[in-house]
Amino acid sequence: MFEAQMAQAALLKQIIESIRELITEATFEVSGTGMMLQAMDSSHVSLVALNLRSDGFQLFRADRPFSMGMNLNHMAKMLKCAGKDDTLTMRADEANDLVTFLFESPGNERLAEFELKLMDITSENLGIPDAEYSATVSMPSAEFQRIVKDLGSIGDTVEITVTKDDVRFAASGDIGNATIKCRQLLDTEKPEDRTLIEMVEPVNLTFALRYLINFSKATSLAPSVTIKLSTEMPVVVEYKLSDIGYVRFYLAPKIED
């Protein structure tokens, strides 16, 4: 038996909306520690890792480890039916190939029950090494979204360069070139407005912009985003979900042919 209650159905809805274009089917692994999902896009260029800790839920019960394969577009269809302030309760047991989503309005006057068919998904579990990164940049998530969207109108790829003083995002295309330079900014009223650059050694990497633009769909989930880079390694783009976990996106770099 699995049962978990979230104060805001809208949170899971936003999470699924932010990842469902990259991965259409995925298996949620449920255990005493929480809910996890890890899946690569069909081209094996990007990976989504979602972790929702059990202590971040209002109620969390998983008698034994349990896998729930779901079509994320179907899941999104159901989560869209939740009211803005509804709570969400998820229930599933191994006897049925179903997961139930219960949406309850704040005054408990409306209770909606949606049952989603689970599916068997053959997915391989990947070991993601806990690497030390050459550079870590934290910046407002809306700023990162703006940068990748703006550069996406100029070129297909972005060259990210981190030095001690700044991080530069550069793109080139048929119409011309663009460079956006962000300096470290620590003296802000709100911590989430900071741009923090931690550099062990300078890095310069190139990535496909369309994936980064896709990752930035998670902007509404967190005020700030952390970008971790090492030469010739996949970049990690992390959105921390307050009090409950994170969604991380990994993207393999482009390399010289």
């Binding site: 094996h44 990947l126 070991g127 090494p129 010739e232 390399i255 042919d257």
Partner: peptide
Amino acid sequence: MGQKSLDSFFKSV
């Protein structure tokens, strides 16, 4: 430029 795949970075466990 060529696109690297994640398969060479993350091993199946």
